[in-house]
Design a protein around this nucleic acid. Structure first.
Lengths: 370, 370
DNA sequence: TCTATTGGTTGGAGCGCTCTAATGCTGTAG
DNA sequence: CTACAGCATTAGAGCGCTCCAACCAATAGA
């Protein structure tokens, strides 16, 4: 249970501790003979450098801290993949901590990450107050992903939520929809731009926006739909604030005997793996997640190594992925809803024909039902 | 960009560095006057202790390392929740790293975690070779979750995969199924027990096991089903190695024009959030995930604090969650498949009637189709 | 009054490493 | 033969902290 130290290696190789240190950081100013002797000794002892002692002594760190606001959301896993890729290329390690979407727990996670004095921090969709972030930014470089900031010491990587919402609205309008509601993400990060984009796009088309309060969850989506049905204000198309919300909305619609997409079209946001499942086959807005991670890591490393000080604001273009939850609206004559579901396919792998198929079935059943 | 040190706090509070140290570790042997003076100074300077220096000096660590083999899988998120809960209670922090299911990357993640000299390590379903694990176990306590080990220095927390598979088979048999295939998890961790449990249970019922090679993925499940259809060996029920595999299997079945559960019943394994979605509503085997995490953290902390040396082997009982992908098999007369899908509901929240509904529809459509 | 005792406080060594400046050693030029 | 590079190597200080032993009142016991 006790790891060998540099001293042990030095002793065994018959050199000084400093020389071992040079070899470990593969300095060029070491003779081949000594280098191999040291390497051999290290190997025999199973020595590997103590990262903390190293970083303490060098007053630098080769660690990037990553705070994932919600481990349950696969969205972040792909961002982490992108971060990891770049970090590894550049010889940095990452350590992750999670806040479980609770500000208190997230704050703790932040403290914990900070206590390791990493070279920098990447926060994925943090929910802590902005002040906590700018306070941390006084101590080390910070990059925010999926959350914006005006602080000049922090960089941000976001998708253009306004544009994403606009893509969705344009798609629905081109299918012939006029009444399109937005299930709003409320306080959720990025909910603002999406809502703005939706409103702007609706108005650009000369349509009346209908913003329905909701949240980034399955249950909230279902609840919002039930509310609309009860109010008698259900439109022909729904733009959800994210995929989870959309799936909840679809469930509630179908529970109410409505067909998706024949009676109501639904568009999600995020293109999570959930949306791609054939079973769900959700039309949605895709964000380049791994690219988020890569850009975030790049931005951070630029601050760390090149001492950049001007803030970077990446705003990536989202794209529309058409699957099987959107179709032209039913005409006013009830029995003859549009017979052809959308079959355009926006992503290469994944969603097959199953859902379209089952929708066709559900349509038939309904017409025989009433 | 420079954090204050203990020295700074001591200076400002007019005490020695050692006293500040005592206050930071809230030692009882400090007078109230001094304590509050130090706390005030620390507050004013925005001081927080340097975890690495602390652990270097004390030769102990209050950090638990967690290696998550796959961040994309929400299964692990819940285990981490459990770990975090216990760790936090006991004053430990956790740092996470991920291996992305690649042995090479996982090895690197392990090295990285090790370089922080944490008090112990919890590995969630690791894919590195056993030798790598036992080597690491010489340096610090290790707990394995969802992977077994014979090494006496490592503890393990698993579900009883044999029992889980047996529950699934019993359920299917009780519905009247006789031909039940198992889509096998191959090399995947825990695939062995599940396969054994399946085979044993089948034989106990006097039935012939049919083990089909597959993997823990969506795509693999679909592929396996297509193979069975091509061979003409498709049974009336499928027990998948996990939920992802099951969802892939369902897609492939429905692509082939078969109805779930009327033509074929499908049971998953893991009860992921995916399974609970109304859209999917998968009958599956639930594992107490948060409990896995809690037990793992407990076991680790026992080794760390109480110097326990005898290995602990937790084997938790899984449970069956019946949703809407299982039903009695169709009788031989093709047109009159069992008309009633299972409606038993194993979990309180979540899956509603939508899926059962759409299955009913799909059945109708099929009878009118051919 | 003197010695123990106790509770509070402090100096200093040291954790495993890096980094600077200094050292020893060769080889070449003056 | 001395001088001086130029290179490989090393001693030693120090990173921010903990921990031990020593210290210093202030009180208690004799």
């Amino acid at each position: 249970m006790v790891r060998p130290t540099m001293e042990d290696v030095a002793l065994r190789a018959g050199v000084s501790r400093a020389l071992v240190s040079l070899v470990m950081r593969n300095s060029p100013k070491v003779s081949e003979a000594r280098r191999s002797a040291v390497l051999k000794a290290a190997e025999e002892l199973g020595y590997s450098p103590h990262a903390m002692a190293r970083s303490l002594a060098s007053r630098t760190s080769t660690v990037l801290g990553v705070m994932v606001s919600d481990l349950h959301n696969a969205f972040f896993a792909e961002v982490v993949d992108g971060i990891d890729e770049v970090a590894r290329e550049q010889g940095f390690d990452i350590i992750i901590n999670t806040g479980g979407r609770s500000p208190a727990r997230e704050r703790r996670a932040l403290e914990s990450l900070l206590s390791f004095r990493p070279a920098g921090l990447i926060l994925l969709s943090p929910v802590v107050p902005a002040t906590a972030i700018s306070k941390a930014a006084e101590q080390l470089p910070i990059v925010l992903v999926a959350r914006s900031s005006r602080v000049s010491t922090v960089d941000t990587v976001n998708d253009d939520g306004e544009q994403g919402a606009r893509l969705a609205v344009d798609h629905l309008v081109s299918l012939g929809h006029k009444r399109i509601a937005h299930l709003d993400g409320g306080e959720g990060t990025q909910a603002g731009p999406r809502r703005r984009g939706y409103v702007t796009a609706m108005e650009a088309h000369g349509l009346t926006p209908q913003v329905v309060p909701s949240e980034y969850t399955d249950a909230a989506g279902a609840r919002a739909i039930r509310g609309l049905i009860d109010d008698g204000t259900l439109p022909t198309a729904i733009l959800s604030c994210n995929d989870f919300n959309a799936v909840g909305a679809i469930s509630a619609l179908e529970d109410a005997g409505l067909r998706v997409p024949q009676d109501v079209s639904v568009v999600g946001y995020d293109n999570t793996s959930l949306a791609a499942l054939r079973h769900v086959s959700l039309t949605t807005i895709d964000q380049p997640r791994a690219e988020f991670g890569r850009l975030a890591a790049d931005a951070l490393l630029q601050r760390v190594r090149e001492q950049r000080t001007e803030p970077v604001r990446h705003l990536l273009n989202p794209s529309l992925v058409v699957r099987n939850t959107t179709a032209p609206p039913a005409t006013s004559r009830r029995s003859s809803g549009s017979p052809f579901p959308s079959t355009a396919e926006g992503d290469s792998a994944g969603s097959g024909s199953r859902t379209a198929d089952s929708r066709a079935k559900s349509q038939e059943r309904r017409s025989s039902d009433q």
